[in-house]
Design a protein around this nucleic acid. Structure first.
Length: 469
RNA sequence: GACCCCAUCGUCUAGUGGCCUAGGACAUCAGCCUUUCACGCUGAAAACACGGGUUCGAGUCCCGUUGGGGUCGCCA
């Protein structure tokens, strides 16, 4: 059997991480099995669907490098076919017209709730003759679902789940305005598109039972289901798509790398022994539904963060530069100096996100004189300042400026001053970066260049004089 | 409320009846390395929700309890 999976989001909001993981699993499973992966937008609810949401979903998926086969399918474009199938069901006596008003249904539910019965439609129009139909009401079309027996869902991750048919009601297939509901549309599309495996959040588990009833009414083969547990927030509560902070877009803007997000999402609910860092290629080779866990996972930002730090470290310098450039040019009015590139290996190792990377390179971008932050200021005592003045002339005498020449100069200087290297490095770092932490001091000086280094050193001295130190 | 699902360190998880005095990772703490920070390395603390069975033997199987989650729309 050829594998065809699909990601079928409703375009009512941003792509959140739960959806992204569902997409990832579907994509991985399809790629693993040399199958197809389809992106289908479930927009049968025209009131809530927006083009912006479609764009957000598409761009989120693209950013994650999750690609789909063929064009994006809009479910609403297949409306005719859905109606056709509903009519087939109607003429086969597997569906019927229901003339209940919304108010009547509300009352029905209310009564059921009070009586402690399942809150479902009681099927009152199921066997009524069409002569009873009120002439001024346009009916909905409901499925004539089996009333007895059980519907069993054979699920790749949940196992066998049995639902008593008495718990399920005659669901609406076509609304009174003639449009198809999700329940019908999803079944028809999954069938017509030859979807072999339906991998989705387990909030759809109950829907699976209902959809199986539609399949059997139609005599269609039921696809293989895999309902994966939802991702919860840190507090254990369900992640809401209303929360923008959980969106793929927000992680992108917070400076996370797509491969880190993918790796993190993959490990949420799926494991391959003790492996933690898993490349996308390994994931394709290894992914299986049997290793998907059944219990919901909580979203843990520090794990994502540490994975991101890992992918930052192994990322190509040039690529990181490209990623960071647009953000850099937004904040400064000059082109970034070459030092940004030359120092990238040291900078990226100290940055957990792209945002941190930018922060960590800020001292390279600032114009003189530098702002010295509070922590750095502590290293600039009057003793240190005079030491720095002597260091200025020492550094000035270096003929060829490089990490190694700077290092040997500093080490020599330490010997003549009878100081430990650290006692020189820290004030020096404070003076040339304005911070107490930075990449290695030799590399920093080398990247800054001789002129800039000496000028920054002089700045500190003059500022101190001005302040009367 | 009814129905369904779930339950191992704080978090993500390994574990498919003996290999478990429960392993890994993140986070935490201590130390080493060291020009700072980070990386790296070493170590520490940290869990089978509870109660009953089944079995020679249970984290692993069964039942119950508790706790969490999901679903009950002319939304998807």
């Amino acid at each position: 059997m050829s594998v065809v999976t699909r990601f079928a989001p409703s375009p009512t909001g941003v792509l959140h991480i739960g959806g992204a993981r569902t997409a990832l699993f579907n994509w991985l499973f399809a790629r693993r099995n040399n199958g197809q992966f389809i992106l289908r937008i479930e927009d049968t609810d025209t009131n809530r669907s927006t083009d912006e949401a479609v764009k957000a979903i598409v761009s989120g998926l693209e950013w994650l490098n999750i690609d789909w086969d063929g064009n994006v399918v809009s479910q609403s474009s297949r409306c005719e076919r859905h109606i056709e199938v509903a009519n087939t069901l109607l003429s086969a006596d597997h569906a019927y017209r229901c003339y209940c008003s919304p108010e009547e249904l509300r009352l029905m539910r209310e009564e059921a709730r009070l009586a402690g019965r399942p809150i479902i439609y009681d099927g009152r129009w199921r066997d009524r003759p069409s002569s009873d139909a009120p002439s001024n009401v346009s009916p909905t079309i409901r499925l004539k679902a089996p009333r007895t027996g059980k519907t069993v869902i054979r699920d790749e991750v949940q196992g066998e789940v049995c639902i008593d048919n008495s718990e399920l009601d005659d669901m609406v297939l076509l609304r009174s305005n003639g449009t198809p509901t999700y329940m019908l549309a999803a079944v028809v599309d999954d069938h017509d598109m030859n979807i072999s495996h339906i991998i989705r959040g387990d909030d759809h588990l109950n829907n699976a039972a209902r959809q199986i009833q539609i399949y059997s009414a139609l005599g269609w083969p039921v696809p293989i289901y895999a309902h994966i547990p939802l991702i919860h927030g840190v507090d254990g509560a369900r992640l809401s798509k209303r929360h923008g902070a959980d969106s793929v877009e927000s992680f992108r803007h917070s400076g996370y790398l797509p491969e880190a997000v993918n790796n993190y999402l993959l490990r949420l609910g799926w494991a391959h022994g003790d492996d933690e860092i898993i490349s996308i290629q390994q994931a394709i080779n290894w992914f299986d539904l049997g290793s998907v866990g059944r219990s919901p996972a909580r979203f843990d930002i520090s794990r994502l963060m540490s994975m991101n730090a890992h992918y930052m470290r192994i990322a190509d310098d040039e690529r990181l530069y490209e990623e960071v450039l647009p953000l850099l040019t937004k904040n400064i009015d000059h082109t970034p100096p070459d030092s940004v590139k030359t120092l990238m290996p040291q900078l990226k190792e100290r940055s957990k996100t792209l945002v941190e990377l930018i922060e960590n390179m800020s001292f390279l971008l600032s114009k003189r004189p530098l702002d010295i932050d509070e922590d750095a200021q502590k290293f600039l005592s009057s003793d240190s300042l005079s030491m720095l003045e002597r260091l200025h002339s020492k550094l000035d005498s270096i003929p060829t400026w490089s990490p190694t020449s700077v290092e040997s100069a500093l080490r020599e200087f330490a010997v003549t001053e009878e100081l430990k290297l650290g006692s020189i490095a820290q004030p020096l770092r404070a003076a040339v970066t304005g911070r107490k932490i930075s990449p290695g001091i030799f590399e920093v000086l080398a990247a800054l260049g001789k002129t800039e280094t000496l000028e920054r050193l002089s700045d500190v001295a003059t500022t101190a004089t001005k302040n009367g130190n």
